[in-house]
Simulated scan of single mutants.
Amino acid sequence: MPAELEAAGITDPGLRAAYLACRELNAAHGRTYFLATRLLSPARRPAIHALYGFARYADDIVDDLGTAPLEVREAALDELGVALVGALDGAPSALPVITAVTDTVRRYGVDARLFAPFLTSMRMDLRVTEYATTAALDEYVYGSAAVIGLQVLPVLGTVGPGAEEPAEALGRAFQLTNFLRDVGEDLDRGRVYLPLDELGAFGVDRALLRWCRIRRVLDPRVRRALAHLVARTRGTYRRAEAGIALLDPESRDCVRCAFTLYGGILDEIVKADYDVLFRRVRVPQRRRLAVAAPALLRAVAARSRGTSVSVRSMIEQH
């Protein structure tokens, strides 16, 4: 990481520590994202870590403080939002994620207005446990994921206009993939992130999902509903794919890697016959290696002549 910070021109000790903290969050929680970030030039990586670190920190307030009273978690999110606004106005912050993400916003001209809908969606997670319609879920996903695609766009760089809509679509596709992968885990948290109107078209409701989870039996109606939602999510990936060519060439391998590996989760869901209520499907290590290794080799060769870094070890670590 020190080399990345130097490449990015980050020299202040406090700022360096803040970016390092964000990198640790990314490495610990975002295996696919972190691996893809390794394909970026060193100078761009700290900013991606900062944006991810802030998002992860907010998400942890919602989930990891799950045993705390609702009011405590709401207050923590409010304090995070106030701290961010203050930092963007020039006030110092003791939170590393705030320090780093504020610096990133200034360096790359990230639209600061994109953080408000994100925090709104995080607050929704505290009180909203299901979404009656696709439109209602879309509103949540805009704040929780689409704006993330827009936030990283200035860091990745573009070669022409029109990249915003695909960037939003890619953020949505990643989030919808998470929802499909984590149905069982979300049920245990008391949440359903699949639109009830679309589930209802197949005769599925929250009670049936819960019954299947408890009995460890996958009702055929649930399987058909999940197949429909997987197909719809693939359509979102198709809308996003056109945006990769609009990115700075230096950033395309990174996004293509994340696009392919995250989209591969849908393939694994299908291979598992939509059994996502009882286990969490993962992209096999061999596929991760096959997708990421060629791009990593190109990146390593370009940056480190004569490197002794093992590409396999880089992938397996993340």
Results as ranks from 00 to 15, higher is better:
residue 101 V to D: 01
residue 75 A to F: 05
residue 92 P to K: 01
residue 279 R to S: 11
residue 111 D to R: 14
residue 115 F to Y: 09
residue 24 E to I: 00
residue 182 D to K: 03
residue 248 D to K: 13
residue 208 L to D: 13
residue 57 Y to I: 00
residue 275 D to E: 15
residue 87 A to Y: 02
residue 145 A to N: 03
residue 279 R to L: 08
residue 217 V to W: 06
residue 256 R to L: 09
residue 283 V to H: 06
residue 133 T to I: 08
residue 190 G to I: 12
residue 16 R to M: 09
residue 75 A to W: 06
residue 219 D to N: 10
residue 283 V to R: 05
residue 106 R to A: 14
residue 109 G to S: 13
residue 128 V to W: 08
residue 188 D to P: 02
residue 136 A to L: 10
residue 253 D to W: 04
residue 155 V to N: 00
residue 112 A to S: 13
residue 175 Q to F: 05
residue 105 V to W: 01
residue 175 Q to N: 05
residue 154 P to N: 07
residue 99 T to C: 14
residue 127 R to T: 13
residue 303 R to F: 06
residue 97 V to I: 11
residue 81 G to T: 01
residue 235 G to H: 11
residue 36 A to P: 05
residue 239 R to G: 06
residue 51 L to N: 04
residue 201 A to Q: 11
residue 186 D to L: 03
residue 120 T to Q: 14
residue 35 L to M: 07
residue 42 P to C: 11
residue 71 E to Q: 15
residue 73 R to A: 05
residue 59 D to G: 06
residue 217 V to K: 10
residue 153 L to A: 10
residue 10 I to H: 04
residue 167 A to I: 03
residue 131 Y to K: 08
residue 16 R to E: 11
residue 103 D to V: 01
residue 93 S to L: 04
residue 170 L to V: 06
residue 306 G to Y: 11
residue 115 F to I: 09
residue 127 R to I: 09
residue 2 P to S: 15
residue 220 P to Q: 09
residue 154 P to Y: 02
residue 65 L to P: 07
residue 134 T to W: 14
residue 79 E to H: 15
residue 262 Y to R: 13
residue 141 V to I: 15
residue 5 L to Q: 07
residue 119 L to H: 05
residue 169 A to L: 10
residue 312 R to E: 14
residue 189 R to P: 00
residue 45 R to A: 10
residue 177 T to Q: 03
residue 217 V to S: 13
residue 114 L to E: 02
residue 203 G to A: 09
residue 198 E to C: 02
residue 111 D to Q: 10
residue 48 I to G: 07
residue 206 R to G: 08
residue 295 A to G: 01
residue 136 A to F: 02
residue 203 G to W: 06
residue 122 M to Y: 07
residue 21 A to S: 14
residue 169 A to N: 15
residue 231 A to W: 13
residue 108 Y to T: 08
residue 143 G to W: 02
residue 308 S to I: 11
residue 164 E to G: 13
residue 283 V to F: 05
residue 141 V to T: 12
residue 192 V to P: 01
residue 156 L to R: 04
residue 257 C to I: 02
residue 237 Y to R: 08
residue 55 A to G: 11
residue 274 Y to D: 07
residue 97 V to Y: 08
residue 118 F to V: 04
residue 1 M to G: 10
residue 274 Y to R: 04
residue 49 H to S: 09
residue 147 V to F: 05
residue 302 A to D: 15
residue 122 M to Q: 15
residue 51 L to R: 04
residue 281 V to S: 08
residue 38 R to N: 11
residue 228 H to E: 12
residue 172 R to D: 10
